[in-house]
Design a protein around this nucleic acid. Structure first.
Lengths: 183, 183
DNA sequence: GCACATAAACCGTCCAGACGGTACAGTCAA
DNA sequence: TTGACTGTACCGTCTGGACGGTTTATGTGC
């Protein structure tokens, strides 16, 4: 099948992420999103009746993407008889390189309406909780997951205080530490 | 000596952090800061001629606090013949509980003028780089530091997906892992 | 000890522009 | 015909910042 062109709705959400990542959440205005998405302001407001709806849309899409990805990784792990956390980490690593601007949704929402993050908070905390409890050593698992969060933070704020040549070794080590969790 | 009352300048910076932590960076307006600090708008503008100066002040104060703290921890470690990273981690842990709103400065700056973070980026990355290189196992050190970052992120966005009863064990484990780095 | 000067610290108001949102008439492909 | 938009005009509110005025602290000469 051809790479079917994304819906306008998704184009708008992409544009919103781009604006936040490039100019900061303060400049996430409806006008700016419209311009970035090559859509009229009325077009944006057609899909998202107000700005809260836009922010909600950003957070919801992000959450469903993360949820899908974790689910896929867990399925893959189960089918291959591999430890789930290792697969989850691997997929997160491989994405954080390409799609920097994913958690920009969190930034944008927290800037304007911090309470929009409440559902995300709950889902993420129970998910991570569960993933940790499934390992023989939940404490170590939590530490590794914190390290993943740290990586997210550094991408989010462009704090790449990890030199490029050490990225791969760190990735490998984190995965092997995850693997050892189950030993 | 009496607990000499903080300068108006510091009061204003504190107020700015409070506003960001409570209402989101979008609501970090000069008026809001003035109200929170019980100072007039003109008063704020006396100390910080414009908003960029306010944001810069926030970032600079945060950076100097972090710098001082790391320096103190390193001195303490040297004097006691203990591993530096362990001391640095310990002090970060003990602060992150009390003063949640420290890295709110980063949030606020990234929301409005992402480039204000450039100096912070550089200092932090060289510092962490150095701390890691001083250990026998820089890769593992980086992972542990990422975990600290992750903790910061979860505090920053109020993502406390670490259950309270596991906070202490995680703290202890992280410190012991840091200690083992040098073994 | 006191009048006075000077500057620092701070107040309150005003204004231009930006922003969110509304309204509505028109376009255009399916 | 309908749904998915475009384009323009407009309104109320918020915000950064300029500005002029006022209080408070710090000398300084007498």
């Amino acid at each position: 099948m051809p790479p079917n062109k994304p819906s306008t709705r998704d184009t708008i959400l992409d544009a919103a992420e781009t604006v936040v990542a490039r100019d900061g959440s303060r400049r996430l205005t409806i006008d700016a999103v419209a311009a970035e998405a090559s859509v009229s302001k009325g077009g944006v407001l057609y899909h998202f009746p107000n700005k809260i709806a836009l922010l909600t849309g950003m957070v919801e899409r992000m959450m469903s993407e993360i949820g899908d990805e974790i689910a896929r990784a867990e399925t893959r792990a189960r089918d291959a008889g591999k430890p789930p956390l290792v697969e989850v980490f691997a997929s997160m690593f491989d994405r954080s390189e390409s799609q920097n601007g994913l958690s920009t949704a969190l930034l944008a929402a927290s800037a304007e309406h911090p309470e929009l993050l409440d559902p995300a908070r709950e889902i993420l905390s129970t998910t991570f909780q569960r993933l940790a409890e499934e390992t023989p050593d939940p404490v170590a698992a939590h530490i590794l997951m914190l390290a993943m969060d740290g990586l997210k933070l550094s991408v989010l704020l462009d704090f790449n205080h990890i030199p490029d040549h050490q990225f791969q070794p760190i990735r490998d080590r984190l995965l092997s530490m995850a693997r050892e969790l189950y030993a």
